[in-house]
């Protein structure tokens, strides 16, 4: 992983960080998530998925048939790489410096995201634990529901500033605030 990209977050210039208090609707930028792309080799889709689901301490996000994003906000990239290295029939690529992770939460989060994505985010059709690739503010991102009022967006690094500004714009009427997450 490139050290420069690792130590200077892409949203550093977008967040003034003057210690403003977080409002109920808040966007937290995770500073150093470990994000891996996992691709199953032909015919190994089901076995790789089972093995991924049995690994503890990681979140598995669905991208496509036989393709996942593995996200961890607690462990470092090296630790996750070791965990995933044992999985047979899968290719693993470290995306930690290629993706930024935004966590949006609050009572109005669905109303905010309704202006960003064209997918129905009602709990009946997008329950907790669901994730998918979709267009968010004209950028292909991976959106996951991690709680009743919490969503996580994994954005390609170079598009992150644009997505961030647009989500903040859509959240203005709900007083959306943003800051780096403490952890």
């Amino acid at each position: 992983m490139s050290l420069t990209l690792f130590h200077r977050h892409v949203l550093e210039d977008y967040l003034s960080d003057f210690g403003t208090k977080a409002n109920p609707n808040h966007l937290a930028v995770i500073r150093r998530p470990a994000i891996f792309s996992v691709l199953a080799h032909r015919g190994h889709d089901a076995s790789v998925e089972n093995e991924l689901k049995s690994v503890e301490g990681i979140d598995v996000r669905d991208c496509a048939p036989g393709e996942w994003l593995v996200v961890s906000t607690s462990a470092g990239a090296a630790a996750i790489e070791n965990l995933l290295a044992d999985i047979a029939g899968a290719s693993i690529v470290d995306q930690s410096d290629g993706r930024a992770l935004l966590r949006v939460h609050g009572p109005n989060v669905r109303k905010i995201l309704a202006k960003c994505v064209a997918v129905d985010l009602h709990p009946d059709s997008f329950p907790i634990g669901t994730s998918a690739n979709m267009l968010c503010c004209h950028v292909a991102v991976n959106l996951a529901r991690t709680g009743a009022d919490t969503f996580e967006i994994a954005v390609p690094r170079s598009f992150c500033g644009s997505v961030f500004e647009e989500v903040m714009e859509m959240g203005r009427e709900f007083a959306l605030t943003a800051a780096f997450a403490d952890s």
Binding site: A64, P65, A118, V119, D120, S125, A132, N133, M134, L135, A140
Partner: peptide, 18 residues
Amino acid sequence: MASLITCPHCGTRPKEEF
């Protein structure tokens, strides 16, 4: 986003995604 395409993997999505 009027034209909707139902992807067999992702569900109903707008044509802008394709």
